[in-house]
């Protein structure tokens, strides 16, 4: 069909548009491709990112725990005053609460003991007692000394021959080995020849070590240890050593030795 003038004009206009906007169209196409590409990429990457975020949520302490701990340590070290200021109100309250509870318990216990001590029965008893002061008497009853552990250990090898334990020690053999090692280390490092380590204090425990020819006896006690209790304990240790060293069969029969340890140290309690 023959084209009209108007058609020709339109075509020319279209042609002109094509010519003038060619560059823009190219840019537009590129932009479109870029957007499509990024959408495709987003579809691919989204699940991976979600998975990673979930993994991070689940395992955050494992991935960053050490770093955070380290940062906190550094922060505390470098800004001690600020940290103390921030923690003081909380810690102070906790400590105060604990001390109040403990003092209440202590005063109840002291009241009971004092009431008991000033009963007619005890006043008569006191007339016959030795040098012990009332304060010592009260303290001893409030913080009664208790034999917690007794270990009979071969001196050189550190092997455990027999024991008594109030607590639950998982591996007594290993403990007696380490105790022997610590004893040897301390004697080697601090003592002159022939001197032995005799006392170790640890938290609420007092560890006493009595050395004999082939064995040593270690006892762990808790509570307030006065001279009477100490004398009594040493007597018991010496009695046990005497029995064991006279009859060496105790050292090769753990059950038999454990029985005599209980008889010596615990049965009177």
């Amino acid at each position: 069909m023959k084209k009209t003038t108007v058609d020709n004009k339109d075509n020319r206009f279209e042609l002109l548009k094509e010519l003038l906007l060619a560059e823009d169209r190219k840019d537009f196409k590129l932009l479109q491709e870029e957007i499509l590409e990024s959408q495709k990429f987003k579809l691919k990457v989204d699940p991976v990112i979600d998975e990673k975020i979930e993994d991070l949520k689940q395992n955050f302490p494992e991935y960053f725990g050490d770093n955070i701990t380290e940062s906190i340590k550094v922060q505390i070290r470098e800004s001690q005053d600020e940290v103390v200021e921030a923690l003081y109100p909380i810690m102070g309250k906790l400590i105060k609460k604990f001390i109040v509870a403990e003092i209440t318990k202590l005063s109840e216990s002291i009241n009971d003991t004092i009431n008991n001590k000033f009963s007619i029965k005890h006043i008569i008893k006191r007339l016959f007692k030795g040098k012990k002061t009332d304060a010592e008497d009260v303290l001893q009853e409030v913080f009664e000394p208790i034999i917690e552990e007794v270990f009979v250990i071969e001196k050189d090898s550190g092997l455990l021959a027999g024991s008594y334990s109030r607590g639950k020690i998982a591996d007594k053999d290993m403990v007696s080995g380490m105790l022997t090692a610590i004893k040897s280390f301390a004697e080697d490092a601090f003592s002159k020849e022939g001197q032995d380590l005799e006392d170790i204090k640890f938290e609420n425990f007092q560890l006493s070590i009595q050395n004999f020819k082939t064995i040593y006896i270690a006892t762990a006690t808790s509570g307030v240890i006065n001279s009477d209790f100490k004398d009594e304990l040493f007597d018991k240790i010496n009695n046990l050593a005497e029995v064991v060293l006279r009859d060496r069969s105790y050292l090769s029969d753990e059950e038999k030795l454990n029985k005599i340890i209980i008889e010596t140290f615990i049965k009177d309690e």
Binding site: E154, K155, D156, G158, S184, E187, D188
Partner: peptide, 12 residues
């Protein structure tokens, strides 16, 4: 290395 000699005693 100052190791106490006692560590070696009584070993089987």
């Amino acid at each position: 290395e100052k190791i106490p000699k006692a560590y070696f005693l009584g070993a089987s």
